[in-house]
Structures are given as structure tokens and as C-alpha cells.
């Protein structure tokens, strides 16, 4: 690993080193350094999490769960949420993986350009990006207006207020997470491995399938899980870009808190969503040890 521009990979390396060393018996720098952070995580995430679960069952009672599951709109939005999250994850993977690969394997200038492009978009407010997409996609938006002006279409293309638009927006919001996760892993694969494979008779596609893909799999898994989990919680982007059918669970939660002022109900919904996330992580863990995801980062040493 070289170069300052691979900050993400370095962080992963560092984390991997820390975790590996922490695994050893005895005390070292990383254990010491990590302990307060672990405690903060425990206090900052564990306690609220417990409160959410507790409130869902007691405020006013388990009726929250029967209310939630009895609501056909919620059930529908739950399935829609999963569907959209899966689709967004796949789209982020299809677009993000090649991006990450090109970024990892291109020269210094190209890599910097791609990274900056990624970061600028990453750091722009989610709301601003959502409305920017609206300006692009709506019937009187840039795309439809231009296509009409060029005489290619008579009526506006249906690219707003539907699942397509919601997915475009969400993919753009979420792909950076996947790109960074995969990028870190691919950067850690020495280019010599690819050269060795091709020298030994593998065409580029075979080399990719037999070397790069398996070695970047932990990053793909980490990125996909991250994107999927984040997608489950989205609601502003699908609400603005999608139609009313693209209703996500997040919207129901917001409604329960802001409009009905029934935090218990919202907590119940959150717990259901959380169980879903747990299920996904458990399924991932079946195919891949979570530690692998971290271990790979240190391969470049």
C-alpha cells in the first residue's frame, strides 16, 4: 500500500491490524486504544437500542406489534422496502464495482479524479442530491426537455414518480459506500497477482473471475450489506423521486413519530426493521466469516 490517496484502504489496514493484534493474548497499544471507543459505542448505541426495544413492548404495550402487522399499508411498505433495498443494492454493485476497480487500478491522476468525484457527491447533502435528481428527471426536467427539443420524444419519458426514479436516486446516494468498501479491498490486491495470472495463460476475464473477484468478495459482501441496511432506512429520496407506491418503512416510522405521536408504534416498526437487518447479517455470516471482511484489508503488507 502506498500513496496518501488511498486513505480508505489504510484505514481498513489499520483496523485489520488492530483487530488481529487485539486477538492476541495480553495487552497492547490497540487494545488500550480501542477500549474507550468500545465503551462509547456500547453507551451510544447499546442503550438507545435497548430503549427502542423496551419502548416497543411497553408504550403502551405489545399492541404496537399487532397494530403494525395488522396494518396492510405497513406490510405492503415492508415488502416494498425490501424490494427497493435489494434492487438498490444490486444497482449499486453493478455500477459501483467497475467504478471501484477502475479507481483502484488507474494511474494517480485518474484515481484522484474518480475519488474526488465520489467524495464531492458523497459530501453533498442528501436532500440537495435528491432535488437535483428531481430537476433532472421530472417531466419538465432537463432530460425530458432536451429529448423533446431534439424531437426524439413527444410525451415525457416516465422517469419520475416511479420506482425507477427512486432507484436512480438511492443508487447514487448509496453506491459510494459500496465503492469505498470494494476499492479498499481491490487496492489491497497486488497488481502482480493479476499479471501473474495473465502470464500463466488467463485471459483478462478469467483472471478477473479467478483472482480479483474472489479476493474482493469480502469487500463486495461488506459493501452490499452496508448498502442494503442503509437502503432499508431510506425514505426521503424514494418519497420525493418515487410515487406513492414507493412507500418505505422509514416513512411509516416518521409518520408514527411526527403525526400520530406514538413512539411505541414507531419503535415496533424499527424493531421489525432491525430484525430484518439481523437476518441479513446472519445470512451473510453463513457464507462468509465476518472476520474475513476485515482480514483482507491487511493483505497488501
Amino acid at each position: 500500500m502506498s500513496g496518501r490517496d488511498s486513505g480508505v484502504a489504510e484505514v481498513t489496514d489499520l483496523a485489520a491490524v488492530g483487530i488481529r493484534r487485539a486477538g492476541r493474548p495480553g495487552i497492547d497499544f490497540w487494545t488500550l486504544l480501542g477500549t474507550p471507543a468500545m465503551l462509547v459505542v456500547l453507551v451510544a448505541f447499546g442503550v438507545p437500542l435497548f430503549m427502542v426495544v423496551y419502548k416497543s413492548a411497553t408504550d403502551p404495550g405489545l399492541v404496537n406489534y399487532t397494530d403494525v402487522m395488522g396494518d396492510p399499508v405497513f406490510r405492503k411498505s415492508l415488502f416494498k422496502t425490501i424490494e427497493i433495498a435489494v434492487a438498490a443494492t444490486l444497482a449499486a454493485l453493478l455500477l459501483g464495482y467497475p467504478y471501484a476497480y477502475v479507481m483502484a487500478r488507474s494511474g494517480r491522476w485518474m484515481r484522484s479524479f474518480l475519488l474526488v468525484a465520489l467524495m464531492v457527491s458523497f459530501w453533498t447533502s442528501l436532500l440537495i442530491r435528491t432535488f437535483a435528481w428531481q430537476v433532472l428527471l421530472q417531466n419538465t426536467g432537463v432530460i425530458n426537455t432536451e429529448l423533446k427539443r431534439l424531437g426524439l420524444i413527444d410525451t415525457p419519458l416516465p422517469i419520475i414518480r416511479n420506482e425507477f426514479a427512486a432507484l436512480v436516486g438511492m443508487t447514487q446516494m448509496l453506491a459510494p459506500f459500496l465503492i469505498l468498501a470494494v476499492y479498499a479491498l481491490i487496492r489491497a490486491i497486488p497488481p502482480e497477482l493479476e499479471q501473474a495470472a495473465m502470464g500463466m495463460g488467463a485471459r483478462r476475464s478469467t483472471m478477473f473471475r479467478t483472482v480479483v473477484l474472489p479476493l474482493s468478495m469480502p469487500g463486495v459482501a461488506a459493501g452490499c450489506v452496508l448498502v442494503f441496511v442503509l437502503a432499508l432506512g431510506f425514505y426521503i429520496t424514494p418519497q420525493v423521486l418515487g410515487g406513492p407506491s414507493e412507500r418505505m418503512v422509514g416513512q411509516s416510522i416518521a409518520e408514527a413519530v411526527h403525526a400520530f405521536v406514538r413512539p411505541g408504534l414507531a419503535c415496533a416498526m424499527a424493531v421489525i426493521l432491525l430484525l430484518l437487518v439481523g437476518l441479513v447479517l446472519a445470512a451473510t455470516a453463513r457464507f462468509m466469516r465476518l472476520s474475513d471482511i476485515l482480514k483482507m484489508g491487511s493483505m497488501s503488507e
Binding site: E192, Q195, G199, M200, T206, V211, L215
Partner: peptide, 20 residues
């Protein structure tokens, strides 16, 4: 000729063994 058809063996300083 593309690399994969040149029938070469390669040895690198960092060994370049496939870790997986």
C-alpha cells in the same frame, strides 16, 4: 500477442501467490 497467449511463467519480488 496478448499476455495470456505468450506462454510465460512469472516470478515476482512479492511472490504474487494467490492468497485465497
Amino acid at each position: 500477442l496478448p499476455v495470456h497467449r505468450r506462454n510465460i511463467g512469472m516470478v515476482f519480488q512479492n511472490y504474487a501467490l494467490f492468497p485465497h
